[in-house]
Nucleic acid binder design. Structure first.
Lengths: 187, 187
DNA sequence: GACGGATTCGGAATCCGATTCCGCTTAGAG
DNA sequence: CTCTAAGCGGAATCGGATTCCGAATCCGTC
C-alpha cells in the first residue's frame, strides 16, 4: 500500500502546479473571491484543464491558497511575535496580523477563519501553528498573564473571530482583539 | 419626489411576497444556503419570475430572510433576556440565542453576522436591536458589571463573532461568549 | 357589472462560470 | 531514439441564477 499512492509527479507538472498556486495567491489577494478559474488559468499561462488537474475544485484551490496564507502568518508569528517577551503583546501581534491579512488583500477570507478555528488543521503548517499557540499560552499561564484554563482552541476561536470580523468589516477588530484578550486574563 | 416612489402594491402581489418570504425562511432554516431560487418558487406556489419580482436577487432574498431572523432574535431578547435582572446573564442569554439560531436551522448564516455587526442596520428591527443593546449596556455600566467605555458596537461585534463561530463550527461558541463578556468587565 | 390599462405572473430562454472530457503533447525510462 | 503513461489545452457540458415578455390579474372608473 505504498506504491500505488506515491508515483512521483513529472517535473514540469510540478512546476505548473507551482505557477498556478502562485498566481492564484496574487489574484485572490487582489480581488478576493470574485476571481474565476479561467482567469487563474490564463494568468498562469496554462489551460483550465491544467488548473483542474492540480486543484480538482475551486474550493480545493482556495484551500491551497489559504494554506499559503497560514504559512505566511506562521512565519510572521515566529519572527515577529514569539520573540516579544511580553506575552500579551505577542498575542496581540499575532492576532493583529490575521486582521491585517484581511485588510490588505482581503483574500480567500471565507475559508481562512473556518480553517483557522479547526483544531484538526490541514498539513504541518496547521500543526506548527497549534504548537506555536501552545507555546505562547504556556508562557502566558506561567507569567500570570492568562487564566490557567485557557486552551489553544480558545486562542484559535478568537483568531477565527478576528478573521471573520475583519473580513466582513463587522467592526473595529483591533478593539476586538483587546476585548478578547482581556477575557483571557485571570479573574 | 413622493409620488413616483410610492405606488401602492397590488394586494395579491403583497400576499405573494409574503408567501415567498415565509417559505424561504423555512427552506433556508432546513437546508442552509444550498436552497435554489427555483425551489423557493415551487414551494411558494409561484413562478421564478415572481420570486425575482419581489426579491431582485438571491442575495436580496437572503437579506430579507435574515431580517426575519433578526426580528425573532429581537423578540426573544425582549421577552427572555431583558427581564433578567442580572445583566451578565441577560447578555449571555442574548448572545446564546444567536448561537442557537445557527445551531438549529443553520440558516442564512453568512449574511447574518455581517448584518449583525454593522452599526447602520437595515430597517427598524436593526434600530430596535441597537436600542436594546444600549439599554443592556447602560444597565451593565450602572451596576458595575461592565467597563464604562463599552459601546454597542462592541456588543454587536461580539454578536457577529458568535454568529461566525457557531456558523462555521469554529469552536465552542458558548465558551467564547463567556470569554468575550469577561473581556468587557471593568479591569 | 363591464372596461381598459397598469401591475403581476409564469416559466421558457439566456447567461455565466465551474467542471468534465478527450484527442494531442511531451517528459523521461529503457 | 522509441514508446507510453502522465499531462496539457480548451471546447463542450452542466447547473443554477437572472432576464424577458406574452398571458393573466387586479382595481379604479364609468
Amino acid at each position: 500500500m505504498s506504491k500505488p499512492t506515491t508515483r512521483k509527479p513529472r517535473t514540469d507538472a510540478e512546476r505548473n502546479r507551482g505557477r498556478v498556486l502562485e498566481v492564484a495567491c496574487e489574484l485572490f489577494a487582489e480581488r478576493g473571491d470574485e476571481v474565476q478559474m479561467a482567469e487563474v488559468a490564463k494568468a498562469a499561462g496554462v489551460g483550465v484543464g491544467t488548473v483542474y488537474r492540480h486543484f480538482p475544485t475551486r474550493q480545493a484551490l482556495i484551500e491551497a491558497v489559504t494554506e499559503q496564507r497560514f504559512a505566511e502568518i506562521l512565519a510572521y508569528a515566529r519572527t515577529a511575535c514569539l520573540p516579544n517577551p511580553d506575552t500579551r503583546q505577542a498575542l496581540t501581534c499575532f492576532l493583529t496580523r490575521i486582521g491585517e491579512v484581511h485588510d490588505e488583500g482581503r483574500g480567500v477570507s471565507s475559508a481562512i477563519e473556518a480553517a483557522l478555528g479547526s483544531t484538526e488543521p490541514r498539513g504541518e503548517v496547521g500543526t506548527d501553528l497549534l504548537a506555536l499557540g501552545e507555546t505562547l499560552l504556556d508562557r502566558g499561564r506561567a507569567d500570570g498573564t492568562l487564566r490557567a484554563d485557557v486552551k489553544v482552541a480558545d486562542l484559535y476561536m478568537i483568531a477565527g473571530a478576528v478573521a471573520a470580523i475583519s473580513r466582513d468589516a463587522i467592526g473595529d477588530w483591533r478593539r476586538f482583539i483587546d476585548i478578547a484578550l482581556d477575557g483571557l486574563r485571570p479573574r
